[in-house]
Amino acid sequence: MTRIDFHTNIPDKLAYACRLARKAYAARAKVVVLAENAAQAEELNASLWTVSDLDFIPHVLAGDPLAPQTPIVITFEESAELPHHEMLVNLTRRTPANFTQFARVFEIISTDEEDAAEGRKRYVAYKKQSYPLTHFVAGQS
């Protein structure tokens, strides 16, 4: 069953997604990042090139011929053909249609009240379906 981790109170979802991608890559995990739209996907693509002066985080947009060999794949289309199903990082305000294909889902919820309200709805929906949930609140120890 898919494990779902909620990370809430995140001030910058893109920067956070970059750090998660870097950590996953260091652990040799494969990740799909689901962006809200094409603009956010492009912004994330650009951000991954500059996340650190010392780190190279191999990534491509879904549909790229190198996607099957690349550990980080970015998409905004849920219907995209995805080569990896290990981890999904959800930056959207919706429940991904294909989340059950993944072993683990990270729901990234910002400090924005509308984003937080949508995140709470997803949490309740996942809980009603008995998915294993964890909750990490940024800024709290």
Rank of each mutant, 00 (worst) to 15 (best):
T2R: 05
T2S: 11
D5P: 02
F6G: 05
H7D: 10
H7M: 12
H7N: 13
T8W: 06
K13L: 10
K13N: 05
Y16R: 12
L20V: 14
L20C: 12
A21R: 00
A24L: 04
A26Q: 15
A26F: 10
A27T: 12
R28K: 11
A29C: 07
K30M: 06
K30R: 11
K30A: 04
V31R: 02
V33K: 02
V33Q: 07
A35S: 12
E36P: 03
N37F: 08
A39E: 15
Q40E: 13
A41G: 06
E42S: 13
E43V: 00
L44T: 01
N45S: 13
N45W: 05
S47N: 13
V51H: 10
S52V: 10
L54W: 14
L54K: 15
D55Q: 13
D55F: 14
F56N: 06
F56Q: 04
I57Y: 01
P58H: 11
H59V: 01
D64I: 01
D64F: 04
P68R: 01
Q69L: 12
P71D: 05
I72H: 04
I72G: 10
T75P: 10
F76E: 08
F76K: 03
E77Q: 10
E78H: 06
E78A: 11
E78W: 08
S79P: 01
S79Q: 13
L82M: 10
L82P: 03
L82W: 00
P83V: 00
P83Y: 01
E86S: 09
E86R: 09
E86I: 00
L88D: 00
N90C: 04
N90V: 01
N90I: 05
L91K: 05
L91P: 00
L91M: 04
R94G: 01
T95R: 14
T95E: 14
P96T: 09
A97Y: 07
Q101L: 12
Q101M: 08
F102A: 00
F102D: 00
F102H: 03
A103T: 12
V105F: 02
S110E: 10
D112K: 03
D112E: 14
A116P: 04
E118V: 05
G119M: 08
G119D: 06
R122N: 08
V124A: 15
V124H: 15
V124G: 02
Y126S: 08
Y126T: 07
K127E: 13
K127R: 14
Q129E: 14
S130C: 07
Y131F: 15
